[in-house]
């Protein structure tokens, strides 16, 4: 069934249609959130918030853009808001990290990379560096890069989500990659 048909059914209170919409979009939303959060638990929480927002605001959706564009926008905004709110309590997280001596995302990387401690440590360090490099990008570069790399969105789709021109998206992703390269190469040279 088309998105439009599902939305009409959700507006009438059809829970089954909402489940179908969730099945269709939850991985896309989750991957987008993972790109911003780099943490499975946070990404799940934001995915949950996104679908609750969709359910609550479905009557406000005026079909001026595609539903996919609308849901990606919600996912990006929710992720950025979450990062902003997290920054406020960052000092608390730092204390927690100092006490625990580890970060949450290490657990996830361990899960995906097997059991060799050396490989786990090396990749954990690299993942940490990559996340820090992505997080330090300017906001629009980060959005464009994340949508492109984590969600494999085309430049055209990104331009629709961000409501900017195609050439702007090209420029943003090019600059994001250059910035990432600079940060990562500096890190490798130092270490």
């Amino acid at each position: 069934m088309s998105d439009s048909g599902l939305i009409d059914r959700i507006k009438k209170g059809d829970q089954q249609a909402f489940k179908l919409l969730f099945d269709k979009y939850h991985l896309k939303v989750f991957n987008t959130c993972m790109g911003f959060m780099h943490n499975k638990n946070d990404a799940e929480d934001i995915t949950q918030d996104v679908f609750i927002e969709v359910y609550k605001s479905v009557n406000k959706f005026r079909r001026e853009s595609k539903f996919s564009t609308w849901i990606y926008r919600i996912a990006v905004n929710k992720s950025l808001n979450h990062i902003r709110d997290n920054k406020k309590s960052n000092w608390l997280n730092n204390i927690e990290t100092l006490i625990a001596g580890t970060k949450n995302n290490e657990v996830e990387i361990k899960d995906t990379l097997g059991t060799d401690p050396e490989i786990i440590f090396e990749n954990t360090e690299k993942a940490d560096m990559l996340h820090r490099a992505i997080d330090s990008l300017p906001k629009n570069q980060k959005i464009a890069f994340t949508l492109n790399k984590y969600e494999d969105l085309s430049y055209k789709q990104i331009s629709e989500v961000m409501d900017i021109s195609l050439s702007s998206v090209e420029s943003l992703i090019h600059r994001a990659k250059k910035n990432l390269q600079k940060k990562l190469l500096n890190y490798y040279k130092i270490n």
């Binding site: 939850h26 991985l27 989750f30 991957n31 993972m34 790109g35 780099h38 499975k40 990404a43 799940e44 995915t47 996830e108 990387i109 995906t112 990379l113 990749n123 690299k126 993942a127 560096m129 990559l130 790399k149 984590y150 390269q181 990562l184 190469l185 490798y188």
Partner: peptide, 16 residues
């Protein structure tokens, strides 16, 4: 650099 960027692919494999 190649190994670091490959981490993105690993992260994309995560399932909710």
């Amino acid at each position: 650099l190649k190994e670091t960027l490959a981490i993105i692919t690993q992260e994309k494999a995560a399932k909710p």
